[in-house]
Design a protein around this nucleic acid. Structure first.
Ligand code: SF4
Ligand code: SF4
Lengths: 135, 135
DNA sequence: TTATATCGGACAAATTTAGTCGTATATAAT
DNA sequence: ATTATATACGACTAAATTTGTCCGATATAA
């Protein structure tokens, strides 16, 4: 269906919230969850993935929370999708070292190369779409 | 996951096959199915949708089958996705006359407009990607 | 009349996404 | 030390979507 996942939308909302609230304090998942009306447990996992991908940073413990690792202008859509969902793959074969396990047609498929070009264009578009424009 | 559906891939394979085999004869679903190794019943439905969207034309009955309505250069990815899957919608709200039924945030969502711009760019990219390049 | 084809919708299986739950760990405050 | 509040992590369930199947109807050439 070629849709952004809810998780990606939630991640964008969270980053937006952090961007407006990270002056000298940390923001908790609970605060974002309540303020943006995002299911707490789901958002918690999303935040962890954003941390793992160095988009936000975290401090554990009481009074802990999150803050943006870098300004929104340095965060792009590809990074968020990769962090929160998975790598962008327009088809089952469009990544390095794909084998017949991934798609049995892979050896003789005439679509693979042109679709790879298309995927590169999409990734390029998403690379150039920063959170600054979306927020 | 931002992926092309199998149905879209199958549709492209079918169009490719038609393009190479529609000199003075009709091609049946069975022939495409066997030649391209696509599940017959699924392909049959895909062909019907392509007909409905005027991408291919059909003749019923014995010796019936399909042929391309227009040359591959005049068929683009947006048309195929719309025909075979559904309209491209990057989020639940990104179409004309979306209401709160579609997304409760719709009234006050700051993401909607920028994501709409992004969707337009994707559609533009897909519009400019003709089957001639993919085939 | 028969064989072969498209047409159309209902159905089922498989996969993916969305959301939930339980537990462990970290840390500030009491 | 204990408590309260926070992140971290993984397993699990539920919902939605995609993929594939089945059945009956209609069309038409032989
Ligand atoms: S090899 Fe061809 S059929 Fe298989 S996933 Fe890639 S593009 Fe699709
Ligand atoms: S209104 Fe906002 S939250 Fe709702 S679907 Fe559109 S972009 Fe997403």
């Amino acid at each position: 269906m070629l849709k952004l996942s809810k998780s990606v939308e939630y991640a964008i909302f969270a980053i937006k919230y952090l961007n407006y609230n990270t002056e000298d304090r940390l923001v908790s998942t609970k605060e974002i969850s309540e303020s943006m009306k995002i299911p707490y447990d789901l958002l918690a996992k999303i935040m962890q993935r954003l941390v793992k991908n160095d988009i936000v940073s975290s401090i554990q413990g009481t009074k802990g929370g999150y803050y943006l690792t870098k300004p929104p202008g340095q965060i792009n859509l590809t990074q968020i999708i990769s962090a929160v969902d998975s790598e962008i793959r327009l088809t089952d074969c469009l990544f390095d070292n794909a084998t017949e396990e991934d798609c049995s047609r892979i050896g003789a498929c005439s679509l693979r190369s042109p679709l790879n070009n298309l995927q590169n264009k999409i990734i390029k578009l998403f690379n150039s779409t920063t959170l600054e424009e979306i927020i």
